[in-house]
């Protein structure tokens, strides 16, 4: 690394890792990305949230120099992605939606190959590969072909490949889609360490919970446009904090339970198809409002006080669907379907 590069990297701290303005990508007649403005502060995790087909992956592919923008501009650490792609490539890594590893090769071979391509000499490449496989819990699987890895292991190998040279910006395109909960938690833990070491992370996801867990700021994308942007807290308070789900022992007490919940939570209560289940929205109002968990606890205490036996309960965040309903008046599914129709019409 040259002195200029080192100064450049130090100067980034506190600046923007990514800046886009009016970014556009057109496929045929469809505007997959339709004027996206983003500012991603360096050293943070930035979440891009949206349903399938919203344009998330297309945005990432343009920023990672895989696709040329059709309009607007995008800068990564000040370098224009279309005019200086090599300067951008030197500082970013991509973990794509489908594992970006060679499935015919073993874990070790995959990492040594990439380490060599990043300029490491053979002994250094081997050493780096071994250390990473070890840190990612893949030492035992090191000599097995990646096609024999489980989904979670493949994803970890993929992330390990992305940090062979610790990148300044890491793109994670739906890193946990299709993973079981445990593997997903592993990926989340890894992302937290990566960002704590100073790497900026741009994360796309379909799950509000994932963005909430990891991201400092979130942009919600629908049909190629940013329809909301802010901290997870801002976003959630704009759509309500979530819902309490309650299951009673006695279906005969449901009407009474509904009345109690509506009174304490001051929100509409829905009766599920299941004769013992109820769902109520938790919507703390105004600044300094009561925490959702406190509100929910109050409601449960009140149920117990009224002699209503609760077998099971949970408090959940609003789903992506609820976020979309609140922001667009349509569910995420509807929005995607329309998108697909448009795409088919264009084809």
């Amino acid at each position: 690394m040259g002195m200029r590069e080192m100064r450049e990297r130090t100067a980034d701290r506190g600046g923007a890792a990514i800046e886009t303005s009016g970014l556009v990508k057109v496929f045929g007649e469809q505007r997959a990305v339709d004027g996206v403005d983003l500012t991603v502060p360096a050293g943070t995790v930035y979440g891009v949230l949206g349903p399938n087909g919203a344009g998330k992956t297309t945005v990432v592919r343009m920023l990672a120099t895989l696709l040329r923008p059709d309009g607007g501009e995008a800068r990564v650490f000040g370098h224009d992605v279309a005019r200086e792609p090599d300067r951008v490539r030197a500082r970013v890594s991509l973990t794509g939606q489908y594992a970006s590893v060679d499935e015919d090769l073993t874990g070790t071979e995959n990492l040594v190959l990439l380490a060599r391509l990043l300029g490491h000499r053979k002994p250094a490449a081997r050493e780096r590969a071994a250390r990473l496989l070890d840190a990612f819990g893949l030492a035992e699987a090191a000599d097995r072909q990646a096609k024999n890895y489980s989904g979670g292991m493949r994803r970890r190998l993929d992330i390990a490949a992305s940090i062979l040279n610790t990148p300044d910006l890491l793109f994670l395109d739906e890193p946990t889609t299709g993973l079981d909960p445990r593997s997903r938690n592993q990926v989340w833990d890894i992302v937290r360490v990566v960002v704590a070491q100073g790497t900026t992370v741009l994360l796309t996801t379909q799950y509000l919970e994932e963005a909430d867990q990891l991201a400092g700021r979130i942009a919600v994308i629908d049909r190629g446009r940013v329809i909301a942007e802010g901290t997870p807290g801002e976003l959630k308070s704009s759509v309500g904090a979530g819902a309490v789900h309650v299951r009673l022992r006695d279906p005969g007490q449901r009407a009474e339970a509904r009345r109690v919940l509506a009174m304490v939570l001051k929100a509409p209560v829905q009766l599920a198809a299941d004769p013992v289940a109820l769902t109520a929205r938790v919507m703390p109002e105004g600044a300094g409002a009561t925490e959702p968990a406190v509100l929910a606890a109050r409601a449960l205490a009140e149920l117990a006080g009224q002699g209503i036996t609760v077998d099971d309960f949970s408090l959940g965040q609003p789903s992506l669907d609820e976020v979309f309903l609140a922001l667009t008046g349509k569910s995420a599914g509807e929005s995607t379907e329309r998108h697909d129709e448009k795409r088919e019409a264009a084809a």
Binding site: G152, M153, V194
Partner: peptide
């Protein structure tokens, strides 16, 4: 749905942090 083998993996922050170093000198381009 977890795979037995991978369930035993718990990402250790110190170990991962040790392999990450954004300030580390990078080898020259091949």
């Amino acid at each position: 749905a977890g795979n037995e083998a991978e369930d035993t993996y718990v990402p250790a922050a110190e170990v991962l942090a040790a392999v990450l170093d954004p300030a580390a000198p990078r080898p020259p381009r091949p």
